[in-house]
Amino acid sequence: MSEKAIHVEEHRDDEASKLGMWLFIFTELLLFGGLFLVYSIFRAQYPTEFHQSSLELSVTIGAINTVVLLFSSMTVAMALTAIQKNDQKRALIFIGITLFCAAAFLFNKYFEWGHKIEHGLYPGSDLMPLLDRGHLLYFSLYFFMTGLHALHIIIGMTLLIVCYFKVKSKNINDHDYVLLENGALYWHLVDLIWIFLFPLMYLIS
């Protein structure tokens, strides 16, 4: 048995990895798409209730989170630019900023949720079943959609932490950066979803 016959050739195809990531993003978009569909149907049925409920949310916190996410989306794109320019130091700083923003977003979210939960507004609470249908559906969707989004933030953070250490150990470098590229793509997806979530949840009149 010759060496070549048994050794599976280690080949690298960055185009393939990137296409794979994009396809995964399509899946994620449609996962949230299902929720947006549910949202749009219930919103069409209960416009006033959705409006009243949305007033319970703080536009300020929502806006701050939007700015934080948009900013982090830029920094992660910059991290990629830095790696392409073989600037390891800056790349690390940019990933670091992105991770910090992600943590800030979750911190904000924690307080926002905490505030609601304090008022007894959470799925499974004693208060929720007393609400009428429109309000109940709004808050159910609010917790479900932002919760799923927060889960994606955590997944994105994990990916970026891996990227951080790989950049540090020079496993991601200006010759091989597809992993960071994919991590960044995933992070932009999280941003993309929030771009729709913010106006639909916080700004409906």
Binding site: T27, G34, F144
Partner: peptide, 16 residues
């Protein structure tokens, strides 16, 4: 790729 996530989210909603 494109249809399965819809059932995924639906079943998650049912579980929730």
């Amino acid at each position: 790729l494109l249809a399965t996530p819809i059932i995924g989210i639906t079943l998650l909603m049912l579980i929730a």
